[in-house]
Amino acid sequence: MTERIIDHPILGKMEDVNHVTFSFNNRVYKGLENESLAAALLANGIRTLRYQEESGSPRGIYCNIGHCYECRVTVNGQPGIRACITPLKEGMTVESSGQLKIKEKEV
């Protein structure tokens, strides 16, 4: 589990946070509205976002600004969405994409 930096020596306290609920691989989590999906997942301790199509090797965020597509997930049924540049909204359904027939990590 990683932590949120609530208080920062220079940036100060986090302001205007609004909690929302979303799901990742059928499990329900809480995050902050409009933060990136990748940040919300990491704050919940989730690093593995997908599995490589052929080998099934686990992948997580790499560049965090939309260049590398390593964090692509399925959002509300739409595949290929970059978690690092997608703002979190209430009720989002997120699923990791992956190698066909690979055994999912415990859900």
Partner: peptide, 12 residues
């Protein structure tokens, strides 16, 4: 997972 570019860590 857990390996990221240094810029990714900065943004996070």
């Amino acid at each position: 997972p857990g390996v990221m570019s240094v810029g990714a860590a900065q943004v996070m």
